[in-house]
Design a binder for these strands. Structure first.
Lengths: 224, 224
DNA sequence: TTGCGGCAACTAGTATACCAGTGCTTGACA
DNA sequence: TGTCAAGCACTGGTATACTAGTTGCCGCAA
């Protein structure tokens, strides 16, 4: 486990959750490895209670498996779940971006444009972390504009399966195409052309395809 | 709180969760009322720990609000959230039923037909509870057929907002139309006509419309 | 009568203690 | 040497104890 500082006014449970998620995504906690509530709580300077609550939450989306009286483990990569995450994302984002064409205000659109401008800036200046953050924010904004925040949160919870595989494929390329995709989407929203926006979103999301067989070969033992 | 027996091999947390959900949906726990971890645990013969874990889970989908150091409360009806639940259901079920046309095996289709047959049986013999159960099962089957079980679970978690309003509108009519809808959907799947199935599902789900203003008048104080 | 200070009674969050299972190790016996 | 059983060391689940923060009430003073 690689730990970072505990934020101020973050409860122990939130901290444990954040740490676990980060370490699962970046593979510091390797798929299949056992997690001990005792070890984790010692490591994070917490008692078992908040750690346990975090583990329960992660087990809800099957990224952690809890075997009563035996132990908990980081779930193996389950391609079915990765597909579910992708499916959910494709379907919901498509619908949301279409809605956004009808609901976005002038301010929303200029906020989106501002976000894309920042993406370009951080791309030029090579800030990959910041870029990823802005990417996520871009998509979240679309849900917020259409008053679908809760939907976003649910989607976010399952997306961890997707993120972990993305990390494995090192497909954090975040190249110029991503940004120009975003740009086109914003302009489609501004033009209020729902069909076009949806089509662009589908094209955008289809860039994230992983070769399951290749990954299985590269990371044997990580898969279910 | 109206309590039922605790199932065998059900953990305290699962029991507490089930009881809370049931009582929230059927309005025995009225929107806005305070929930005390201490009272609840005494009432259910549990300690605070499992009750607390159940409350945390419910607060994730905003059906329970937790105010740190002050108390928890059943959330008021928030029409935004009801709309989010409806949106998510419409979008995902539409996509799933379309997928089912491509993926359903002969066995799946005969299972679906069997489910609908049972619905007809329980309709004739007036078993509204059983009918509701079969209805839910029908929809769940579609997700299972298309290997989208986890998506179903996430959808299910937000649907509680929808269910509570449905209960308020007493729209548990479960009339013949519902069953004939199901029948048509199954046949569209059998015929592998995706477009048709999707259209039918949209028609089916559109039957659940509530008159927000009327409900607000009937249940003042239940709304946010 | 009104305003204000302090205390009592709550809360959620966390820590700790206890219990009932599980599986692995170890050692005795065939 | 192989086998099997007893025990031990772990687990997650639950109960309980403790802490710190909030609210509101009660009584006293102006």
């Amino acid at each position: 486990m690689r730990l970072t500082e505990r934020n101020l006014k973050e409860t122990g449970r939130e901290y444990a959750l954040r740490m676990l998620k980060e370490n699962i995504i970046n593979l510091d906690l390797i798929p299949g490895s056992m997690l001990s509530e005792n070890e984790l709580s010692a490591e994070m300077n917490l008692s078992r209670t908040p750690v346990r609550e975090a583990l329960i939450e992660l087990s809800k989306v099957k990224i952690v498996e809890v075997y009563p009286q035996k132990g908990s483990a980081v779930a193996f990569v389950d391609y079915e779940l990765v597909e579910e995450a992708r499916f959910m994302r494709d379907v919901l984002e498509g619908a949301v971006v279409e809605l956004a064409c009808r609901m976005a205000t002038e301010k929303d659109i200029s906020d989106l444009r501002e976000n894309v401008r920042l993406q370009e800036f951080y791309m030029e200046n090579r800030f990959p972390d910041k870029l990823l953050e802005l990417d996520n924010e871009f998509h979240q904004m679309l849900f917020h504009i259409t008053s679908k925040d809760q939907v976003y949160h649910l989607l976010d919870s399952i997306t961890i399966h997707f993120d972990r595989v993305r990390r494995m494929s090192l497909a954090v390329v975040k190249d110029l195409k991503t940004i120009s995709d975003h740009k086109e989407i914003v302009e489609a929203i501004a033009a209020k052309s729902g069909e076009e926006a949806k089509r662009l979103m589908e094209k955008h999301l289809s860039r994230y395809k992983f070769d399951e067989e290749a990954l299985r070969k590269e990371y044997p033992g990580y898969f279910k």
